[in-house]
Structures are given as structure tokens and as C-alpha cells.
Nucleic acid binder design. Structure first.
Ligand SMILES: [Mn+2]
Ligand SMILES: [Mn+2]
Ligand SMILES: [Zn+2]
Ligand SMILES: [Zn+2]
Lengths: 140, 140
DNA sequence: TTTATTTCTAACAATGGTTGCAGATTGGGT
DNA sequence: ACCCAATCTGCAACCATTGTTAGAAATAAA
């Protein structure tokens, strides 16, 4: 994801308006490695601007995802996670106990070869490695 | 997943009762390669037993998943998909246009090596290949 | 700066998928 | 056939997300 300043520029150049609510969402996402849910982005934003609605956070997240500035992940933890790291191709590691999501910089170059039906246009592949993180394992 | 007959045996041996509703769900799943949603399992069941509730279908699917007889997939198509093929380790191919899910028998042996944080217990890895199936591509 | 245009926000309602609950029903051992 | 724990149904509640819209705010024009 671009910096909040660069995003401000980009939004304006597309005829979109810069509101303090949007900037607050940009700030909450910038350099955020936690793969937050919409809810947790909202919490972070509300800490500074108590009136911002969850609806507005969703709207901005969707806008950013449509522009390709963030990506939406569905890792089976109930709600979607948002990832500002779109520059660096990577996969994910998920703790099934606490829901933590971490980047996984492994190469997955499956030889899809024969098993992809003829005519299927592959757009991308995502690997999710599941397990239990250390702090969760230590808990019992 | 075991055969409906074997599941009947297994349920009984665990003190669970065999009801026609449950058997209908077993039948709907047996050798079903479509990765159905709860809703579509329900449709199939209702075709033969019109009074079976969606609640009961969910209940049985959850029971089977807990026993490891089927697996629950979250591939980002809105609702969960259920997969009776737990014998053969495999991954999935998803059409982002129509929601079709197909088995993908590729080897994904990521060298997780360095990138897994110390102490993380890996339980498994799932690859989802996304794209567009032929019939969807042909449509436009 | 004032006004006009256009977009955005907040609040609330609605949706789709899934689960919790209570009371009626039933499987299966006796 | 009887009994009772297990199960089923129908419905309400729940959660994550999206639709709606009137009024507020940001930008453009004057
Ligand atoms: Mn990531
Ligand atoms: Mn499968
Ligand atoms: Zn954990
Ligand atoms: Zn398709």
C-alpha cells in the first residue's frame, strides 16, 4: 500500500474526496503487519475519531481493495482480514487458536500441469499454513 | 468419508442415534465431488424428505466434520463448502465467477524452513488456486 | 469568499450464513 | 410396548457485511 500522503494524492486525482475519516483509515493500515479485520481497523480509527462508523471503514477498505492498494484475505477465522502488503508476493500462516495471521515468504510454484482443466484461466494461488502459535501452545 | 453404511455403524458405536435425516445427509455427501454448501446438501436431502430442516443438516455436517469424516472449506465464496474426500490429500481450484470448486491433485511441499516462527506447530497447509473456469470464460 | 456541485458520512435497516434454544418427537435398549 | 436420552424442527438470535438516504462536508466555480 502506498503511504497515506500518496493515497491522498491518488484519491484526489480520481475525483474522490479526502476526508479525515479516510485518512484515519489510511493511517491505521500503513505499515500494519497484523492483517486486521474491519472491526479492528475501526477500533484503531475510533480511538482518534470517536464518531467514525464501521460502515465508513468498510467502504474505505473496499475502495482500497478495488484500487489494489490492499488485499482482502479469507483465512477461515470468521471475518475478512485486510493486508496492506501488496508489494511483496507472499502467503500466510494462521494460528487456529488465536487467529493470528503472519506473512510467510515461501515460494509456492506448484506445477499445476495436468490437473488444471483445459480452459481454466489461473489468476493466482494462495497458500494458508495452519497450526498453533507458540504462545497458544504454551498456554496448555 | 466412509460409506453411509460404515457411518451408520460408527455413529451407533458412539452412542449416537441413526435417524433417517442423518442417513439422508450421509447419502447426499457420499461420493459427491461438488464441495456442496450446507444449503445445497439441504436441497438434495429435501428432495427425498421434504421436512428435513436446514438446522439438522448443519448439525450433521458439523458432527461429521468433528469426527474428521468430512472437511469444511472456506474458499471465499460466501458460504462454507463441505468436502467428503478426506482420504486423499489434495488442494482446490476455485472459479471466482461461478463458485465452482474442484480438486487439485498437486504436490505442494513448501520448504517452510526459516519463515515459520520458532515454536509454531504446523498442522497443515491448503492451497487455493483462483481463476475462471472455461464455461465462465466462454460466457463473455 | 460565497455559492454551487458532487461526494461522503452516520445512522439505521436489511441481508446471508450460521448457531442457540425450547418443546415436541423418536430411536433403540430394556 | 415402554422409557428416556438423543434428536428434530421452527424460530429467534447472531455475526459480518452491505443497502439506503438525508444531511454534512469537501472541492470547484464564480
Ligand atoms: Mn500478508
Ligand atoms: Mn476437495
Ligand atoms: Zn495463537
Ligand atoms: Zn465458473
Amino acid at each position: 500500500m502506498k503511504t497515506p500522503a500518496a493515497l491522498t494524492e491518488q484519491f484526489r486525482s480520481q475525483g474522490l474526496k479526502i476526508t479525515p475519516q479516510r485518512v484515519a483509515v489510511f493511517d491505521a493500515l500503513h505499515d500494519n503487519p497484523t492483517h486486521p479485520t474491519a472491526e479492528s481497523v475501526h477500533s484503531a480509527v475510533v480511538a482518534r475519531m470517536p464518531t467514525v462508523s464501521l460502515r465508513t471503514v468498510y467502504q474505505t477498505l473496499n475502495d482500497l481493495a478495488e484500487m489494489g492498494e490492499i488485499s482482502r484475505l479469507e483465512v477461515g477465522t470468521g471475518s475478512a482480514r485486510f493486508d496492506p502488503n501488496v508489494e511483496e508476493p507472499h502467503h500466510h500462516l494462521v494460528c487456529e487458536s488465536c487467529g493470528m495471521v503472519r506473512d510467510l515468504h515461501v515460494e509456492v510454484a506448484p506445477d499445476l500441469g495436468d490437473d488444471v482443466p483445459d480452459g481454466f484461466e489461473v489468476a493466482g494461488a494462495e497458500l494458508v499454513v495452519r497450526g498453533r502459535c507458540r504462545s497458544c501452545a504454551d498456554k496448555d
